[in-house]
């Protein structure tokens, strides 16, 4: 088990290999389809986006609404491949990590290598379990998208596996 702290640095990323079990602590950003579309549109127009991408991890998640008195609802990963068309632009803008479930495109894999980034996968359908590792969660942008808003999520020892490492090794092709 390897401990990972956010924001990610080159050294941490370099030490991680596809298939490694990790525990992530720090801030991660939750965003999925519609939020990605908007982020990339803003970047292409040269506009400011709602958070600093540098060294950050985007978690592909759309949690269930938070009931009163709890930190977050169910918050498991969604299918990453739908984000493939947006990911290279985000990586080029400084994003260092992604977390979701499933295979990525060749283009994403190439960009992961050239940008020295990393792709984590976590347990699909296990949103109740994963919610136990969230210490704080707040919506920060695109609220009108409802479950597709961008969330700032504080996690502690959030369990994941390295899906694609910075050398392009892929857990799904083992």
């Amino acid at each position: 088990m390897k401990k990972v702290k956010t924001p990610l640095d080159v050294e941490t990323i370099g030490k991680l290999k596809a298939g490694d079990f990790v525990e992530i602590s720090g801030v991660i950003y939750g965003a999925r389809d519609a939020a990605h579309k908007r982020l990339v549109e803003l970047l292409k127009k040269g506009k400011k986006i709602p958070f600093d991408l540098n060294g950050q991890i985007i978690y592909y998640v759309g949690p269930t609404p938070t009931p009163p008195g709890v930190i977050i609802g169910s918050c498991g990963p969604t299918t990453s491949s739908r984000m493939d068309i947006y990911t290279p632009d985000l990586l080029k803008a400084g994003l260092k990590g992604m977390m979701g479930k499933g295979i990525r495109s060749e283009k994403v894999k190439e960009t992961i290598i050239t940008c020295g980034a990393i792709y984590f996968v976590t347990y699909g359908g296990c949103g109740a379990y994963l919610s136990q590792f969230v210490k704080k969660c707040e919506g920060i942008a695109f609220f009108e998208l409802g479950p597709e808003a961008i969330y700032k999520i504080n996690v502690e020892n959030f369990p994941a596996i390295v899906g694609i490492d910075s050398k392009g090794r892929d857990i799904y092709s083992f």
Binding site: T64, G73, S74, G76, T78, G127, A128
Partner: peptide
């Protein structure tokens, strides 16, 4: 956990 804490099994 989903059963005991009444958290949806999956966020979808």
């Amino acid at each position: 956990i989903a059963e005991n804490k009444k958290i949806p099994i999956c966020q979808d």
